[in-house]
Structure formats: structure tokens, C-alpha cells
């Protein structure tokens, strides 16, 4: 019961603070998990990968995935409600009111500062995943075994194959209309070739 309440409140908190959609949630989620030890960073990265592959909002998918991992079906319900209830409450309470104040200079000003902050935090999420999975500046236990690691003074600086994959994924998304699902699936196949 305690773990379900914990799941619910964690996602309710995340949902309340994630201005700008699902990806903003990940860095906050990672920090929360580091504190409460519900899942390790690499387990959470797996969940994010699966969440990105599935249809539907990425935030809901990640919540459901983590909820299942931590506490099975009851965990799914708790995590899902945690994500959905604050949105529903905020929308119903604030909807009509917010339409009136939405163009108010104070609200504009707050959103003008919040939007670039969210952008910075999303890049922080990407950096965090790269750091914690041995792609850049790996710790001793996260160095990629079959990778082409570049070392400077005994510290791993980056791993070439992963870096190429990350840059390739970014530019494919930027320059083509390939759906992210195929990018994830394709990189999975490449992963089998490159790292097995």
C-alpha cells in the first residue's frame, strides 16, 4: 500500500511541475528515483525507450511502465492516476479562469521565462542519460565493454559508436520525417550489430 501511495504522489508531483510536456518529466523523475531507489537509472532508461516506442503520450507510457515494474498492475493504476488526476483537476478548475488570464502580461512574462528553462532542462535530461549510460565521461562501472572508448588521462571521455548513433538519430529526426518508432527500432538493430 505504501509503495502505491508513493507512486501516486511521485507522479502527481511530476505531473504538476512538468510544464511543456512529457520529456520535461524525465530529468525530475530520474532525480526522484535516485532518492527513493524504486528503479536504477538504467532500468528507467529502458522504460523511457519502451515509452518512446509505444503510441500515446510518452509521460503516461513511462508512468505505466515504471508502475508495472515497481508494483505490478496496482502500480500501473497508481502511477496512471498520479499522472492523470492533477491534469484533470487543473484543467477543470483552471480552464475557464485560465482562458481569461492567459493573455495577462504577468502570465505572459512567467511563461516567457519558463519556456527557455524547460528547454534547458530537456537538454539536461539528454545529457543525464548520456552520462549515466557510459556514453560520455563514464564511471568505471559504466564504461561500455564492446565500445570504442576514448580515454584522456585514464578517464573515459566518450564512446565513439554511441556518439555517432546519437548524432545520427538527432539529424534523422531533424531532416527527415521518419517516425521516432523506426529510429528506436533501427538503433536497436544497430546496437545488436555494434555491441554484441
Amino acid at each position: 500500500m505504501r509503495i502505491l501511495a508513493e507512486l501516486f504522489f511521485m507522479f502527481a508531483k511530476l505531473s504538476t511541475f512538468s510544464f511543456g510536456g512529457g520529456y520535461v518529466m524525465f530529468p525530475i523523475l530520474m532525480n526522484e528515483l535516485e532518492r527513493n531507489k524504486m528503479a536504477t537509472v538504467s532500468e528507467m532508461t529502458d522504460i523511457i525507450a519502451i515509452a518512446g516506442m509505444s503510441p500515446g503520450p510518452v509521460a503516461v507510457n513511462a508512468a505505466v511502465g515504471l508502475g508495472y515494474k515497481v508494483a505490478g498492475f496496482p502500480g500501473v493504476v497508481a502511477a496512471f492516476l498520479g499522472i492523470a488526476v492533477p491534469c484533470a483537476v487543473i484543467v477543470t478548475l483552471v480552464a475557464s479562469f485560465f482562458f481569461k488570464i492567459y493573455k495577462h502580461p504577468m502570465v505572459r512574462s512567467i511563461l516567457n521565462v519558463l519556456r527557455p528553462i524547460i528547454t534547458g532542462i530537456i537538454f539536461y535530461a539528454a545529457t543525464g542519460i548520456a552520462l549515466k549510460n557510459g556514453i560520455v565521461n563514464a564511471a568505471e562501472n559504466t564504461v561500455i565493454e564492446k565500445g570504442w572508448n576514448v580515454f584522456v588521462h585514464g578517464n573515459q571521455l566518450f564512446e565513439i559508436k554511441s556518439l555517432i548513433l546519437a548524432v545520427a538519430a538527432f539529424f534523422l529526426l531533424l531532416k527527415t520525417r521518419i517516425h521516432p518508432i523506426f529510429i528506436i527500432l533501427g538503433s536497436g538493430l544497430l546496437g545488436i550489430v555494434l555491441f554484441k
Binding site: F26, I135, K146, V167, A169, P180, I192, F195
Partner: peptide, 21 residues
């Protein structure tokens, strides 16, 4: 090993989300 390949793609994906926003 498939997920070893997917992690960097996720990094690229999130960077793209950041770029778009």
C-alpha cells in the same frame, strides 16, 4: 546490446524534443 544502441538514440530523440521546443 540492442538497448546499448537504443540509449544513444534516446539521447538524440530528447535533444530533438529540446530543439523543437
Amino acid at each position: 546490446s540492442a538497448f546499448r544502441g537504443i540509449y544513444p538514440a534516446i539521447v538524440g530523440l530528447i535533444c530533438y524534443a529540446g530543439y523543437k521546443i
